[in-house]
Design a protein around this nucleic acid. Structure first.
Lengths: 337, 337
DNA sequence: ATGAAAGCGCTAACAG
DNA sequence: CTGTTAGCGCTTTCAT
């Protein structure tokens, strides 16, 4: 048995309430008493039992983090950002991996809801209705998912697509393939929305392929489809797919970027980690995790008003140009002076 | 306030103990009563409060998972394996990211020790003494770290090195560079041990470079050192470094594997994800997470005997040969018939 | 400023 | 088989 508040009280010759107050309401305890209690507590290695405290305060000091797939480096980064922010506020975090399954998701949320003050839910696979039901009563922040009235942190995928397409158009590309991700993904819908807007505006032709699983293997398949589609550039749903495309193209002896330019999404394949380096839309993954927890903490502190627009945060994305993109062949010869 | 055991008891017109028993000791409740209670409980959406339960049973139903860096995909995989196993036993998991800092590590462990039944600690950066002190009294399983008397799941790095070197030797390589990882890393010590044994046995010459940070950037630097060291093959501490090496070599126009063969470690750069594909020692990361939790659960179930050799588990590793290795140039011309 | 007492939700003897 | 009681470690009235 560890050392309890009772032990400290006995040793300091005060009541348990005084010890409790010394920790949680220092103002209510006379200076010398407080010092003595705190000293003794430290000396004895006393750590308040948060579970017991939670029982009476109904604040656990924990938050829950739910992600679809821990093996995906994207979510590792999100977790990292979230955890750092949680620690800053002295929160501990519960982790839940749903294996992309809505049922798991629901089960896990139910299991941990009693032990957390709030939940950050990344890329949920549940329907809006399921979500609202499971989460009713628990402060929640959604990551990359928009549900009316639910606080969320979103990444501006549509703008990322705009940047990528503008880049390609500036290079002279006029026909671009888009390799779509899962149909249920909010991000994917956003990207397609952005794609349609920008291609219309720039007079560029977009060929929408897919949907594909957002994985390396799907990229292999998508590469062949892209070649057959007679485009000069490919914009993939994420880096994993883009890597697959690159791999398949090199297999088929197609030169990148001379014969086909490739753009990824999310910057998982960080600078230089691939050969050749991949032009990609950088998603602020770590930041999104941090922002999610940040928002949740605000929610926990203030009276909740889910409809308040301040509770919908949009994070910017940024195109990182590397050597996997270039003007299409034949290069547009444009005298410079 | 959520629905409590009291509410269920009232609604079912039984005492709270009966409700409690219906859940935890079904044998002690008469069949019809039990059914009625359970039905009503489900109907009311009752979920036992684990924290309250833990207060009296001193079993929380939670385990803690501590890793040095969530952004490293290696640990993502470990987490995944661990979480899956934990869920099978109906445990919830607390997550701690230590940012490679021993101080953080200690602080986090202290913070969550009261809310968990045991801890799985991956690649700890603490000293043996710190570890023993912080963890005394808490069932713990170490991952990739050996401390006398503490249960652990280890990966057979030494054997991985053996396989890699035998592979290279069979191809005809006689002088191989080893790019070392952090000096404090148990894995690194194991690899060097394996290296020395196998090179002596095979009459191969090993050039030990480093220590390096286990990152992509260090690989860039290590590539130059390797070229200067006049070796025909390089064995890197991990895939991240190996990727850096590949990148730098291509920058300097050195052909892989014709002029230099490269072998990674840990299979983070999964099949085909790099160009060219990387020969690597596959570490069972996901499995190690699962095995860690598995061992911990055993510890929680039985009387603890840390010295028992059954509580030290070694997982095998396996060399995956891909096109980044080949015979050194000039190729050993060996008439085949 | 401090102590005594009640109670958070639950389980575990102890009676019946 | 079921109900009553005590108490896990802590905070929070309510007194003093």
């Amino acid at each position: 048995m560890a050392v309890t508040i009772k032990d400290v009280a006995a040793r300091a010759d005060v009541s348990v309430s005084t010890v409790s107050r010394a920790f949680t309401m220092p103002g209510l305890v006379r200076e010398p008493t407080r010092r003595r209690v705190l000293d003794i507590a430290r000396e004895m290695g006393y750590q308040p039992n948060r579970a017991a405290r939670g029982l009476v305060t109904s604040k656990t000091g924990n938050i829950g983090l739910v992600v679809p797939d821990l093996a995906n480096p994207f979510f590792g980064a999100v977790l990292k950002g979230a955890h750092v922010r949680a620690r800053e506020a002295d929160y501990l975090v519960f982790l839940a991996n749903t294996e992309e399954s809505p049922r798991m998701e629901e089960e896990l949320i139910r299991a941990m809801v009693k032990q957390v003050d709030g939940i950050v839910l990344a890329s949920s696979r549940m329907t809006d209705e399921q979500l609202e039901q499971v989460l009713s009563g628990t402060p929640t922040v959604l990551l990359n998912r928009r549900v009316p009235g639910v606080p969320a942190v979103l990444m501006d995928s549509a703008d990322g697509v705009r940047q990528a397409v503008e880049h390609l158009a500036a290079l002279g590309h006029r026909r671009i393939a888009f390799l779509g991700g899962p149909r249920t993904s909010w991000s994917n819908r956003e990207r397609r929305r952005g794609l349609r807007a920008v291609t219309r505006q720039l007079g560029v032709e977009a060929v929408e392929l897919g949907p594909f699983a957002p994985q390396f293997e799907a990229g292999l398949q998508a590469a062949d489809l892209s070649l057959a589609a007679d485009v000069t550039a490919v914009l993939a749903f994420n880096d994993l797919m883009a890597l697959g495309v690159l791999n398949r193209l090199s297999q088929r002896g197609v030169a990148v970027p001379a014969e086909l330019s490739v753009v990824g999404f999310d910057n998982i394949a960080m600078s230089g980690m691939t050969t050749p380096p991949l032009t990609t839309v950088d998603m602020p993954m770590q930041l999104s995790g941090r922002a999610g927890v940040d928002l949740l903490l605000e929610l926990l502190a203030r009276p909740v008003d889910g409809a308040d627009p301040r509770f919908q945060r949009m994070l910017g994305t940024q195109l990182l140009v590397r050597s996997s993109t270039a003007p299409p062949r034949p290069a547009p010869v444009r005298a410079r002076r």
